[in-house]
């Protein structure tokens, strides 16, 4: 089956004001990401990975060029339309997990579904399924402070996938994890990608993550350095 284009960037430029001058973080990027890809933006700090991920996630908008994400032109979306896009179609995984601290694991995973106004029974089923996916069904009542970093990140993954988004954006998801936990969550993400067909786009410079990617988009100083399909070094167990 031919997969549709999920992300299409054309001459994407992003500039930030810096005092009286401007800093150009992205200098005319163009590439596409197809549905079902397990791709990563790879590069050193300051290469523009996170900036690009924020634009793709409709948290920021381009200064020039266009970013079509799931058919929507990010630069033309209103705040409400961008929020709707994120709510319905995009899952986020952050370096620092970003779980809501006063919520339990269950409530954190449930949060995006509450915003979608999903019914109670359907919601419960989806949350438990997502937590089972990441192997944390027994931790439903634990709060972030009561869980390890690896467990927190698995809850964050469950939160990202619970609504079955078309696209999951993961910004340095293993940066705060040890090797074992990193491999654990990466394998989980590979499994989700394969079994649910969810498109993953990472921003990373962690070799452990790179070892799982099937496409590596290297950025350097805001420019596309290389874009290669690769055979993952690591795979699903």
């Amino acid at each position: 089956m031919k997969e549709s284009i999920k992300i299409e960037l054309r001459d994407l430029v992003k500039r930030f004001p810096m005092g009286t001058k401007e800093f150009t973080a992205l200098k005319g990027l163009s590439f596409s990401v197809m549905g079902g890809e397990f791709a990563g933006l790879v590069g050193p700090s300051g290469s523009g990975k996170s900036t690009l991920l924020n634009i793709v996630g409709s948290l920021d908008s381009p200064s020039e060029g266009s970013a079509l994400v799931l058919g929507r032109d990010i630069g033309r979306l209103s705040h409400a339309e961008a929020a709707r896009l994120r709510n319905h179609h995009i899952g986020f995984i952050f370096q620092t997990y970003n779980l809501l601290p006063v919520y339990t694991a269950y409530e954190n995973v449930e949060f995006p579904l509450l915003l979608l106004r999903m019914g109670s029974a359907e919601r419960k089923k989806a949350v438990m399924e997502a937590l089972e996916w990441v192997g944390l069904a027994e931790k439903v009542k634990s709060r972030p402070a009561q869980m390890s970093g690896g467990e927190c990140q698995r809850v964050a993954i469950a939160r990202a996938i619970v609504k079955h988004p078309e696209l999951v954006l993961a910004d340095e998801p293993t940066a705060n994890l040890d090797a074992d936990n990193s491999h654990h969550i990466l394998k989980t993400m590979v499994k989700i990608n394969r079994e649910l067909g969810t498109t993953f786009l990472f921003a990373t410079h962690d070799e452990k993550v790179i070892g799982y990617l099937r496409r590596i988009i290297r950025l350097s100083d805001g420019l596309l350095h290389s874009d290669n399909l690769v055979e993952p070094i690591n795979g699903e167990d």
Binding site: H79, A83, N87, N98, L100, F111, L115
Partner: peptide
């Protein structure tokens, strides 16, 4: 602020 940013990322509008 991180919580606010996360809520926005998860699909809430700023005014929500």
């Amino acid at each position: 602020q991180r919580e606010i940013g996360t809520q926005i990322a998860l699909g809430m509008t700023r005014w929500q």
